[in-house]
Deep mutational scan, measured.
Amino acid sequence: VFVDDHLLEKVLELNAKGEKRLIKTWSRRSTIVPEMVGHTIAVYNGKQHVPVYITENMVGHKLGEFAP
């Protein structure tokens, strides 16, 4: 499973602090992992960042699938 390192670091850091804030990313190719559930990730679609709230059903899919 591929997840960009910088994105995973941000998610794990927020989980350690117990925070839930918006994470901006250009990494549409990253796979959604269970650690991301409950976070809102702003995924770049080529024009703007689209906020995507991550749920359990999204695990295993790519971030780009949810930012048309």
Rank of each mutant, 00 (worst) to 15 (best):
I54A: 02
E65A: 11
K20Y: 07
L22H: 06
V43I: 13
M58T: 06
T40L: 13
V59Q: 11
L7M: 03
E13Y: 06
G64L: 07
V43D: 00
G46C: 15
K20H: 09
E13R: 07
S27M: 05
S27T: 04
L63S: 01
K20Q: 07
M58G: 02
M36K: 00
H6V: 15
V59R: 06
K62L: 12
Y44W: 12
E35F: 08
H39N: 02
V52S: 03
G60C: 15
A42Y: 04
V1I: 14
V52P: 00
H61A: 11
M36G: 00
L7E: 01
Y44M: 07
I23D: 02
H6W: 15
P68C: 13
V50H: 12
P34T: 12
S30Q: 02
I32T: 04
L22E: 09
V1F: 05
L8M: 10
Y44L: 06
G60Y: 14
I54R: 00
E35C: 14
L12I: 12
F66S: 03
K47C: 15
G46N: 07
D4R: 00
V1L: 05
H6C: 15
P51C: 10
L63F: 08
H6N: 08
V3Q: 04
V59H: 02
E56D: 11
M36R: 00
G18Q: 08
H39S: 02
G46I: 04
V59T: 12
Y44S: 07
K62Q: 09
H49M: 10
N57K: 10
P34L: 09
Q48A: 13
V33C: 11
H39D: 01
G60T: 11
Q48G: 10
E56G: 14
N15I: 07
V43F: 02
D5A: 15
V33L: 13
T55L: 13
Q48P: 02
V33P: 03
Q48V: 14
N15W: 02
H61K: 13
I32K: 00
L8R: 04
G18W: 03
I54D: 00
Y53F: 13
G38R: 06
K62P: 11
V52C: 13
Y53A: 10
G64F: 10
R21T: 11
T40D: 07
E19C: 10
H6Q: 15
G64I: 05
K20F: 07
E13T: 06
L12H: 11
V3T: 06
P51L: 11
E13S: 06
A16Q: 11
I32N: 00
N57E: 14
E56T: 13
A42S: 08
G60D: 09
G64P: 00
